[in-house]
């Protein structure tokens, strides 16, 4: 949907042209709903988050700067709606156990930064192929919220790293650290499933 950032479409959309608004809403309602659900919200919570997000989005649209993409603006607002949905559920922000992840990771390397003898990444492809989403969803639940958000935002279309850092309010170095830690945590969690299989 690259045309959404096209200058003609953007102009029509910012003028609230009905056709442009319909196309935009139809596309992003689906995308955002799936993103919310994949991040662990229930169907109802994901739908409420989308509705709330668009309500804020249209209210704040006149404030959008020329250099900010419509999709970046929308994803940033959706992120807050998802956080709000978690808060409503009474769930405090999950910080996961990053210290434990760091400890497990550091145990895999020697003091020179090479893999320790006998340690080797396990083939997790099979777990992801055969038992697919359930195990991955289990592992995602254990991630801190900020790491969860970073890893799902990388999957959002048409957003480059600069946009994603802007949405999360972090530097590029921090963003990469969030992603590296999130992937470490997911791979160690999935390796446990390989071990149990």
């Amino acid at each position: 949907m690259k045309f959404i950032e096209d200058s003609t479409f953007r102009k029509a959309f910012l003028n609230l042209g009905p056709q442009a608004v319909n196309v935009f809403v139809e596309h992003f309602v689906t995308v955002l709903n799936k993103m919310g659900f994949a991040q662990g919200l229930s169907h109802e919570e994901a739908e409420d988050a989308v509705q709330e997000c668009f309500s804020v989005f249209f209210r704040k649209l006149p404030e959008i700067h020329d250099n900010v993409k419509l999709s970046t603006f929308l994803f940033g607002i959706h992120l807050n709606s998802v956080r709000e949905a978690r808060r409503r559920r009474g769930k405090v922000e999950s910080h996961g156990d990053l210290a434990a992840i760091e400890h497990l990771v550091s145990q895999q390397y020697d003091e020179k930064g090479h893999w320790k003898t006998g340690v080797s990444p396990k083939p997790i492809d099979k777990v992801l192929n055969d038992e697919a989403n359930a195990k991955l969803q289990d592992c995602i639940k254990g991630l801190p919220d900020k790491h969860k958000e970073a890893i799902f935002l990388t999957l959002s279309e048409d957003s480059d790293n600069k946009d994603l850092c802007h949405i999360l309010g972090v530097s590029y170095a921090n963003f990469r650290q969030l992603l590296t830690r999130a992937r470490h945590a997911l791979r160690l969690c999935l390796e446990n499933y390989v071990g149990e299989a």
């Binding site: 309602v29 689906t30 799936k34 659900f37 169907h43 991955l136 969803q137 995602i140 799902f152």
Partner: peptide, 12 residues
């Protein structure tokens, strides 16, 4: 796996 998780999420 993550992409599939999003793709297979129920439609709105």
């Amino acid at each position: 796996g993550l992409k599939r998780l999003i793709d297979t999420a129920p439609p709105a």
